[in-house]
Write a protein that binds this DNA or RNA. Structure first.
Lengths: 171, 171
DNA sequence: CTAAGTTGGTCCATATTATGGACTTACATA
DNA sequence: TATGTAAGTCCATAATATGGACCAACTTAG
């Protein structure tokens, strides 16, 4: 299967990956959250080819993650800003950053430190349950296919049943 | 700059992206969390070429995210399991899933429903602050470079200062 | 007025990757 | 003996990424 057919899959990760699953795209979004907005600025920071940058920005715009807004009339110039949909990627970038900080920092520690103004401390992000607010642990969750429905195709890539003792999270 | 030089950057997202920033890799990891472990199983579910699958599994193994474990002696056969480092990607996949469920579900809703056994409800994931436990909102956080240190190179891709009123999270 | 600079791109030839299909190895089963 | 299974590798072709040159539409410095 071609990569671009991933977006037709019945899987939220596959569909999201079709847009975000690119090293430049993820890094570019990270820069967006750091306040970067302009073509030249992205290009100089990421040091990627202008062609690739243009194609990534276009894709993110098509998906409604970034939107162009005019900041100069003559000549007309635009900058790229996160939309609401784009801003909702903050949890994805945050958790990626937390993982990267832990496993890919050098001896000097994470290059960028994030600070929670509300409580006044530097932080890392963790995930919690929308229903009870408790931290989400891999062993406390399970997945199931949505109920079968005549109006919609059955879900193909469901969770795999493993025999007890062979926990999916085991070493 | 070539994609594979991203891992040398002083940025946790760039370094993580160098491994994870690929649509197949993210979808493959998602399947790992659903209990998938074997080459054939990945290939049939993801419908990607065997060549690409082999290269992704190898990369994930080299990065210590998956580990092979023997499940059959004659002939020797191995399956791929998440390591501790790999299991710590659960927050990344979870938040990606939450975002994808919201923006890329069809009318039948998310194909896979996730359940929190601890509280007994179906859930979505949100991120919280490691220091105070409150939900993390984009507008409540700020980023800064790590302190300058003679023994380590300065951080190049820091946050961008924008003039007040031009909030990075604004529309 | 002219030359150089700025910004946000596009175009192109050349690398680099991805793709599907055939093939391989080493057994097990009918 | 023939067929099947699992986990790959190999190969030719197709699709993408890359860097550098180029372009358009201004602004600024001299």
């Amino acid at each position: 299967m071609k990569r671009d057919k991933l977006s037709d899959q019945q899987c939220s990760v596959a569909r999201s990956s079709a847009v975000l699953g690119d090293p430049w795209t993820l890094t570019l979004l990270s820069d967006c959250f750091l306040g970067v907005r302009r073509f030249e600025e992205f290009q100089q920071r990421l040091k990627l080819s202008r062609t690739t940058l243009a194609s990534r920005l276009k894709l993110l715009e098509e998906h409604g993650i970034l939107a162009q807004s005019q900041y100069e009339l003559k000549p007309p110039r635009f900058e790229y800003r996160l939309t609401q949909k784009g801003r909702e990627l903050f949890p994805v970038i945050s958790t990626l950053l937390t993982w990267g900080d832990k496993y890919y920092s050098d001896e000097a520690g994470p290059p960028i430190i994030r600070h929670h103004k509300t409580c006044g401390h530097d932080y890392q992000a963790y995930i919690a349950c929308s229903e009870c607010g408790e931290p989400l642990e891999l062993n406390d969750v399970e997945a199931r296919k949505r109920p079968q429905n005549d109006n919609h195709p059955a879900v193909e890539r469901g969770p795999v049943k493993r025999v007890p003792g062979e926990n999916q999270a085991s070493r």
